[in-house]
Structure formats: C-alpha cells, structure tokens
Amino acid sequence: MSESNTSQDIASLYRFLAQCMQYPDPEWMNDDFFNVFYNLLGSLGAVTEGKEIRKALEQSSDFIEDLQIEYTRLFINGVPHVVAPPFASVYMDKSIQGSFALRTLNFYRKKGFAMGEEADLPDNLIHELEFLSLLTEEEDYVGEEEFLSTLFRPWYKCFCPRVAEETRHPYYRMVVTLIDFFTKEEEEDGFQLNEA
C-alpha cells in the first residue's frame, strides 16, 4: 500500500471517529453508519463487543433517543452534572476555555488552520480528531505526533476512563476505546495494549 493511500485512510479514520462523537441524529446514524462501524470493529477483532452493541441497539424501542439521552448525560449535562465534558480544558484547566484551549487553538494556527464559522470550542474532541485527520491528510506525521503527545493525550487519558467506566451504553464505551486505541503511542511494536 502506498504511503499516500495510508495517510488518506488514517485521515478517514480520524474523521469517522469524530463523526461517532457527534450528537446522535437519524440523519447520519443509519444502517450505513453502523455497517462501517461493525466492519471496523471486525477488522480489529472486537467481534464480541460489536455483537454487544448490536444487541443493545436492537433491544431498544428507540435506540436513537437512548443514545441522545446517554450523550446528554455523558457530555452535556448529567443529573445534574455532566460525566465527561468533551473539552481538553476541563481536564487541564478545570474550566471550559482555559489556557489549554488557547494553546490548542495556537497549534491549529501554527499548522495553518483556523476555526470555522460553525465550529464549537477549539479543544472539543470532535475538532481535535478532525484536525488530526487534516494533519494526516497533509502527511504531517511529525505534527500529528506532537499534537497527540502534547495536546491530545494529556487530557484524553483522563476523559476516556471516565466515559468507559460511567457509561451505560456499550456504544460510547466502544467509541472512546477506539479513539484511545488510535491515538495512543505504542510502547513497543507487537505489544498488546490491554486497557479499559
């Protein structure tokens, strides 16, 4: 496989992970989406987990609403406090829009990107994944590594276990685990990560 194809695939992967973290809406959360999702799990060997998610969705009378409620509880407002806001600053500065958000924004700028009109806060997980996608598209692996190690992993490693432990839906446990998997630097080739 050529270098540029690989980078395109990785870029797509980041985009797809970002999509998984959007507020659930039948517009995109359809059969096509889940086919890709199960496919991805299958190619990683996570067949059992895929089945578990499929079961949870099939058993529900309105799985979209289930996921909307769970999304609200996890990422927007819980009862009455949110489990894991998807913003870096929350973990690094203990607030929304802390200096970590600014550092993240500055990194985007350093790489020639700015926030779009419709964008949320710069340190929103979705945008960080989109940014990683853009970097890999440009084959800027050094930038990708630097972003992951200095601006992404330091907070994501706090965020991920909170969701994984607190979530009541296997879908979100899988999504954060996937993101964890694809952003974590291997300590050594061939060594089996075993977390979550």
């Binding site: 695939d9 797509s12 096509d32 700028r109 700015a114």
Partner: peptide
C-alpha cells in the same frame, strides 16, 4: 488493514494563513 471507514465531509476547519 484496508480501511473501509466512512469519510464524512465536514467543513469545520477553514484553512487560513496565520
């Protein structure tokens, strides 16, 4: 892996010369 990930067009980032 031959990755069959969906590519969803998202225009959240706009390239700019800064």
């Amino acid at each position: 892996a031959s990755l069959a990930a969906a590519t969803v067009p998202l225009a959240k980032f706009v390239s700019a010369e800064t």
